[in-house]
Design a protein around this nucleic acid. Sequence first.
DNA 1: GTGAAAGCGCTAACAA
DNA 2: TTGTTAGCGCTTTCAC
Lengths: 327, 327
Amino acid sequence: MSNPTIYDVSRLSGVSTATVSRAFSEPDRVREATRRRVYQAAAALNYQPSAIARAMARQRTDRLAYIICKKGATILDEFYAGICEGVMRRANAMEYQLVISTAEDWRRTPKSKQIEGAILAGDAQPDLIAELQRQNIKVVLANHVSPGFDLPCVVADEQSGVLQALEHLKQSGRHNIAMLAGRFSSYITSERYNAFLSAMRQIGLPPEEASIAMCDRDIHSATKAALELLNRPNHPDAIFAFNDTLAAGVIKAARRLSLQLPEDLAVVGYDDSTICTLLEPELTSVHVDCRQMGELCMDRMTALLAGESCPPRLTVVPVSLCVRSSS
Amino acid sequence: MSNPTIYDVSRLSGVSTATVSRAFSEPDRVREATRRRVYQAAAALNYQPSAIARAMARQRTDRLAYIICKKGATILDEFYAGICEGVMRRANAMEYQLVISTAEDWRRTPKSKQIEGAILAGDAQPDLIAELQRQNIKVVLANHVSPGFDLPCVVADEQSGVLQALEHLKQSGRHNIAMLAGRFSSYITSERYNAFLSAMRQIGLPPEEASIAMCDRDIHSATKAALELLNRPNHPDAIFAFNDTLAAGVIKAARRLSLQLPEDLAVVGYDDSTICTLLEPELTSVHVDCRQMGELCMDRMTALLAGESCPPRLTVVPVSLCVRSSS
DNA sequence: GTGAAAGCGCTAACAA
DNA sequence: TTGTTAGCGCTTTCAC
């Protein structure tokens, strides 16, 4: 019942445990013939090295964590799932194991010492970061920057994303561009908000108070806010929404007011999620390659684990506007 | 630099390592005062038990894996992410760690012996199951059943889901109900397909060849197939789609033909994913509680790990129709 | 209630 | 190239 150990293989193949160990972890350090004998014995016994014992002896686990820091949100969020995907792919390719969790769950359980690094996605709280670092765990932030800490952060190019969207709108003849801002993490919210203001100035359409609306992250709230925006005097001819779900709310509002899209109103979303092509009209959106973000996070993590003291502090992932029929 | 060990705590608190160990894993077996001394010393040293050493000594890891078995798909798939969510929540609550991977990635790396159980979501290949079981790893299947094996499977009630959808359509006066079938995993495809045929008979509307269309899983393929379906003579007044994305394709097709929804055509999707409320009109869909599926998977897993030889072989999760304005 | 000590299965000097 | 052996940090009898 109990699994075969390195001793069993050693005995059966007639070599020492050290050699068996080497045959598996440093194959070229054992002679071809010996190696074969070892593998044969291992196969016969159905042996596989115990990763736990290995971790114990080597004092490292080859294990990383992906922790989603977003109140109420999880792996179900397409954006964070995308990052996770990138992290996972690369982690698996490097023979790292990836455990996932949410910030909430993580706090509850002292599962420390089992991971060598953690990639925190989203609104990472300072105390979590501090706690991890106190445990000698390497930390990388995704889609967030935390001023007080010296660690690598991977974010999307918000400035450029918003600018591309607004330039596109201006070029297609829009002059009264409004923004529908959602209440996201403080970092994203303020970045995108400020990016909007500065991009507007940059394209020569100074934003007015009147053209800004806030809403929650659900579609009903977005629809309501959009209706309100569209009913204002001097209503906008284009709305830039903070993400695609909000943009879907805008589309609903427009339809309710019998506006023609994109003739009467252009709509641009953000994230370029899967819903863009499902909507009618298909939604123009700023494409963020979250998988690449995940991969870059892993690159930074790798550097950290390799002992590089100062990998790039900030990594900015380029974004691109994906134009569809809503604008 | 190196982390404090149980020996450090033992020394500082003046008790044996055995007592320190007990203080952490079986608190009530040590006297209140002793325990306090231990905790104090531990806190002073910033000590936390090493899970690896623990696993080594106890011969168990408290670690499970969630493996997504779907060609090309991943955690990005909302359905599988939902199951993952349920599994993760419960796993974390039980102090299990959850590592995630895809079937592809898993095959490539012999990370065996580190997990005690694996939850395979989707189209689990027999050889993967066999391999895992050979390694004494407990296996539970989610959204799939594999005839050759004796293991717990958790699936949604396809029969009931389809029947509810069709009954609803009939009750709202539809008589010519068509099905848009996607090419999913063999299990889901055949289950849903057969459920459709039998449900149609059950509600007294024997299905005709003419009212069935197949398509790939992307929206373009769905739109095309739906157009074709709607252009047939004696075209349907209702379409039941295999999932919400396909249903979105149907809506697109309907719009292209200037059909009024739901007057000219009723549309029903499956899974009740987030897109349902984003679409126009909002999509009626069969709600599957995938989070609950994940939780049930964990329950089965727990039973297996506890040594129960035969937990329920098949667990069927109830589903319910969520009626919205597309029907 | 507490302590002593023998493992758990592997790795990595060091020696041969 | 291969073997010997002392750990890695904790758990768990078995005594006391």
